[in-house]
Design a protein around this nucleic acid. Structure first.
Lengths: 69, 69
DNA sequence: TATTAATCGGGTAATTGGGGGG
DNA sequence: CCTGTCCCAATTACCCGATTAA
């Protein structure tokens, strides 16, 4: 079985809990980031959020890099 | 790699596992979506579910929120 | 025909969402 | 302005043995 060719975009997704673990924050906080538009999010039909790993990692790096702020 | 056409169409079909990977959820969850009517499903003669790729991708897109940022 | 991996079912924990308040 | 916590309802994840797919 192989992944059906779907236009070349296979993003790996992360759960709120996983993102929260990466940032050492509460999952609720991640939810607020999504609600505030700081992080793009997918919703399952049931309403739960999923986050793009690449986007999360980019944000994480931008913080760990200690960019001047 | 294509088209198990037991249903008479050329639509490419996805297994529960494939759909689950796209949404990063458990295959059982995809089964529940089908049972709840949130996602159309076909059944193999043995009872296993198959999903239309086009419908799944459309659903995935409709639930995607880009962080306009 | 035999093998291996995936998906059936059900049943029970764990996570998440949303509102509200510290 | 931002975050952590409490509540409850809903959704999702993991457990099993048996059946199906390739």
């Amino acid at each position: 079985m192989s992944a059906p060719t779907f236009n070349g975009t296979r993003e790996s997704l992360l759960t709120p809990g996983q993102v929260a673990a990466l940032f050492h924050v509460d999952p609720k906080t991640v939810t607020r980031w999504a609600h505030a538009g700081r992080l793009g999010s997918l919703r399952t039909p049931g309403g739960h959020r999923r986050f793009r790993e690449s986007e999360v990692l980019a944000l994480l790096r931008s913080l760990t890099t200690e960019a001047t702020r």
